[in-house]
Nucleic acid binder design. Structure first.
Lengths: 350, 350
DNA sequence: AAACGTCCCGAAAGACCTTGCGGGAAATTT
DNA sequence: AAATTTCCCGCAAGGTCTTTCGGGACGTTT
């Protein structure tokens, strides 16, 4: 038994017409009367129609991320959420879960719920083996979207990314300047765009500083998972190959690398230098404080929102990739490498 | 120019009445006809009412958290999200933003979007000064909800909380066993339920181990913000009062406390022992590795989801508070306190 | 094969909301 | 203080959606 306009009118002591005007935000109602009607509304528990709310919230924007375990994702979500809120939009975060919601399901759900736009962070657009038709379909449905940290020429949408090539190049240069001559790269599966880009930057750096060929560089690339354990495994392999400097594709992996080194009785940074990627929150407080490549999260988040809003507003910027330059943050996990280039004499712990 | 029922009826080749029935999920429409109407709906861009969303997922569940900066919230969100996914529900995370979305706005948005239930984490139910009517209203609307880490006897809903009393008591016992005789507590604003509970546990611990009166204990409580900077400020004050052991209400605050100690040239744990709260991810990797009180996030998340599902399913458990016992995780930020109880002789760094 | 029942859908009436118009009160001007 | 203007609000005539009712199509039973 839902309340009707008549009931509200009676409660507020006005006519039906006035109530209707208030509910639709029409002019011609005195502020006091409007207040009275709104009060009566709440008294009777009347559900305000969406139109009335349009003033307060311009709409919903979906944000799809792969997980929340890596602190970079909550950090980005926070920045993007704040930027959206400032523009009057309400952010809704949907996280993929292994064995559960896929990106497509979440997208469909958000579209069904009438979102004004969607932001994909490290989604299937970053997977070179994925079908990019889904984004074309989304576009056909008229749902604006922006893709973060990934790229595919097949997709007609704006991209926002960190310059992964520059990132690894920066890391390699840093380690080389410290005297490291054997530098390894620990990254995720090869099918991801940021991974191949990081490898490119890695090759560039090794060629530039150590004169290694791409093939020689590839010997020093270890693929693994983006997790702590993944970093640990990759680092163990790289250390076995004699690396004294390890560049990791995420801070989580870097922590895993530190653990791997310690497990073998090696000290970071004395014996092994580790460079992370992301500069996640809290990462400055680790032991040792992690040297890492900072993604400009703030700038990227704001650019993403601005771009999406332009898409929504119908004044789309050119659909290119906005590339953000990362920054090397030197802290305590990197130090002078042993000269001479020989692998440290270690007997594995276990 | 919004599409009318007539238009849709024309597009679908049926009568207005049938369209109305479809839109309201009324019976008496053949499946094929229903499909046709829905198709016509999409063609004309008519926004479907939430009620008849495509039913691949059992439904949406909203999750409202205050922020994402403190890693405990993403961690909880991850656990709850996974548990929901396993049950066929889709989690949607909505985060409050300062100056933006309030809890009420987010709640309303989620209800409008037709969520099957809502989980509030550290929301207004934890604020003793907040009006609890909102939860009664939600209940009246038939939206099941579960409230995490907070409590109010005025609210008729299930609660899931960490035992804050036990937590601080545990921390105080630990520090006292290490020989600390001057122990401080750094917590958030007094109006929050977990804060008053932590203070109660703190008093209990100080009375039990050091024979202090509640009034004496209150002297050693410092209110601040839940952030790193808040912890730093509170710890600075507590150190000035001669405390050698500091119990913090979050890991972020504990990191702030460590920073405060170092700023004054003190070493953690040699001069000052710090105990955190949450056992957030990554916190084991800090320098020093933080001794902390672990919230049983996994168990709480699962219990929360189970309880919510029972509410949704119509077989509500008794609306009491499910209290989870926290666990002391001893790592490297606590050590023997100096005997004698005198404040350390320090000259402040700056 | 006829009779019956069930299911679906449209016509039309009714319920509900919106809006153009005019009256009247308060504020402002003369 | 009267005249004028402005602003609000209710009346009532629309417009839009919902629901009741009856008829027709199809399948089932006898």
């Amino acid at each position: 038994m839902t309340a009707r306009l008549v009931d509200i009118a009676a409660q507020a002591g006005v006519s039906e017409a006035t109530v209707s005007r208030v509910l639709n935000g029409k002019p011609g109602v005195a502020a006091a009367t409007r207040e009275a009607v709104l009060a009566a509304l709440d008294v009777l528990g009347y559900e305000r129609p969406v139109r009335l709310r349009r003033g307060t919230s311009a709409g919903l924007v979906g944000l799809i991320t792969p997980e929340l375990d890596n602190p970079i994702f909550p950090a980005l979500a926070q920045v993007i959420g704040q930027a959206l809120t400032r523009q009057g939009y309400t952010p809704v975060l949907a996280t993929q879960t292994p064995g559960g919601s896929t990106e497509d399901e979440l997208t469909e759900m958000l579209v069904d719920r009438g979102v004004a736009g969607i932001i994909f962070v490290s989604g299937l657009h970053a997977d070179t083996t994925a079908d990019m038709e889904r984004y074309a379909a989304l576009r056909a449905k008229g749902v604006p979207h922006v893709l973060v940290n990934g790229f595919s020429p097949k997709v007609d949408a704006p991209f926002v990314s960190t310059d992964d090539r520059a990132a690894t190049q920066l890391a390699v240069r840093h380690l080389a300047s410290l005297g490291h001559t054997r530098i390894g790269l620990a990254v995720g599966p090869r099918r991801f765009v940021p991974v191949v880009r990081k490898i490119e930057g890695f090759r560039l750096g090794l060629r530039e500083r150590l004169g290694l060929s791409p093939a020689e560089a590839d010997e020093l690339v270890q693929h693994s998972l983006y997790t702590l354990e993944g970093g640990q495994a990759a680092a163990t392999a790289l250390i076995a190959k004699g690396c004294t400097g390890i560049v990791c594709a995420s801070d989580m992996m870097a922590l895993g690398a530190v653990r791997a080194a310690r497990e073998q009785g090696l000290d970071v940074p004395r014996d092994i230098s580790v460079v992370g990627f992301d500069d996640s929150p809290l990462i400055a407080f680790t032991d040792p404080p992690l040297t890492t490549i900072r993604q400009p999260v703030q700038a990227m988040g704001q650019a993403t929102v601005r771009t999406l809003l332009e898409e929504i507003g119908g004044t789309p910027a050119p659909h290119s990739e906005f590339v953000f330059l990362p920054e090397l943050v030197v802290r305590g996990s990197t130090a002078s490498g042993r000269r001479g280039g020989s692998a440290p004499a270690v007997e594995p712990a276990s």
